[in-house]
Design a protein around this nucleic acid. Structure first.
Lengths: 247, 247
DNA sequence: GGTGTTCTGTTACACGCTGTTACCTAGGCC
DNA sequence: GGCCTAGGTAACAGCGTGTAACAGAACACC
């Protein structure tokens, strides 16, 4: 069994990053690309099971890229676009796209379609799909992404709420990188296992959430070792994170 | 290559006629149907490559029919509907539709999608149509769709009520996909073998039903492993499902 | 028909999760 | 030191979910 490898092609770094992270947290290997050149590099350097392709890629039309790719290979392609007019959809299907999603899309819908396309592809190849499966180790702690279980260095289990888990995931995905409250908030909206994009940017919810997580995974919550505050900036996860994929 | 044979299913004679004619003019063999009965006649009397299925078929829901067909055979289905809201699309994909087109549609778009679906089907044509699905395996459990029997990992049988069975089927058909209560409700109205045309969307029936199913198939119902809650969203069936066909 | 059983939806209550608020402390600057 | 601002956190309120209890519906059986 193999974890599906997806290319996320978008020239906007923010969208690309969010999509990549979202897909990773849902059990896929997501490889960000920003141009046809990088797509080809990825295709040459290993198996790719699906391409999520933005229709507007700088001056280039994703549709054209899709067409060229289709002429050469048989990788499924989902086109993502801000254009939902019928003739755009049509152009997409005609060049052989497997699906077409209009922005802004419901993350769960995206996920459902990605799985649907992979499932169809699976029928016709040996590719088998397997869900997320990684373990994160950090400072003696362990987070099992499959079971959503957090284990302390002493071996006892800690139960985190959904939001706390989501927050932890965000930090695990960005060790040593200072994150602003706004970034965390955005990441949580996407990560939060799916509910609607949250409120704009409210009060001190993140502060409180960080406090609660500290209370559960810091030996001495008052003197945090891992979830460090960066005054005037936000928070950093100041620990190395090791990721284990169990194939 | 042979000419693709399509079923055009719509209870409105005018729409049906126009669609049929249009498809014929574009090189397909189009066979008009107006009910599930006529669909089955066609399926029994020869090869069918694709079904274009109207979602509102008199009192019947096309989704319902699609689901039943999917349980028995593997003919690609495109749902055609006046309902374009996301959750309707999701419901369509959930019952295994290959695509979903909202009315009013551009005929050329329809054509493009028909071709796309046929193209995909061709890729995976090694698989035989009209296979019947008989057994689902999930997390050590086993559901025999033919006998409607559920067997635990330890081998003892568990008897589920009709509604519980229907709910289980919905989850088995949508592993790892978060389903809202509304989606589940729709699917149940459709699945539930009987055709209660479905109450609006009442109280907490789904919650209670999920609780009851948990009580029967979860080792530790209080800490569900399979039927997971997604707060603010609904429920997910968080287990891989293996489907075994016996022709 | 009557009776008992099973199934299913509703209701009410408890509880945990999450965001807000208010107040306090810590850090930085003069 | 005094002042100001950012961050920590306790307390609270609102909401979503789990579930026991109940009641009506459906069904089987006599």
């Amino acid at each position: 069994m193999t974890i599906p490898r997806l290319l996320v092609v978008d020239d906007d770094a923010e969208t690309r990053g969010m999509l990549t992270q979202f897909l990773r947290q849902n059990g896929f290997i997501a490889l960000p690309c920003d141009s046809e050149v990088t797509i080809r590099e990825q295709l040459d350097s290993g198996r790719v099971d699906l391409i999520l392709l933005d229709v507007m890629l700088g001056d280039e039309y994703g549709v054209d890229i899709c067409k060229r790719l289709r002429h050469e290979q048989d990788v499924p392609v989902i086109l993502v676009s801000a254009l939902s007019a019928d003739h755009h959809r049509m152009a997409g299907y005609e060049v052989g796209a497997d699906d077409y999603i209009a922005k802004p899309f419901n993350p769960n819908l995206l996920l459902a379609r990605v799985k649907a396309v992979l499932h169809r592809a699976k029928r016709s190849s040996s590719l088998t799909y397997r869900r997320s499966i990684s373990t994160f180790r950090f400072g003696g702690w362990c987070y099992d992404a499959k079971r959503d279980e957090v284990t302390s260095p002493q071996g006892y289990q800690v139960s985190l709420s959904r939001k706390e888990t989501a927050l932890l995931k965000v930090f695990l995905g960005n060790p040593h990188i200072p994150l602003t409250r706004e970034e965390i908030n955005t990441a949580l909206d996407v990560t939060g296992d799916g509910q609607d994009a949250g409120n704009g940017n409210p009060g001190r919810a993140i502060d409180v959430l960080v406090g609660r997580l500290r209370g559960k995974i810091e030996a001495e919550p008052k003197i945090p070792e891992m979830l460090r505050t960066q005054r005037g900036v936000g928070y950093v996860f100041a620990v190395d994170v090791a990721v284990e994929d169990d194939q």
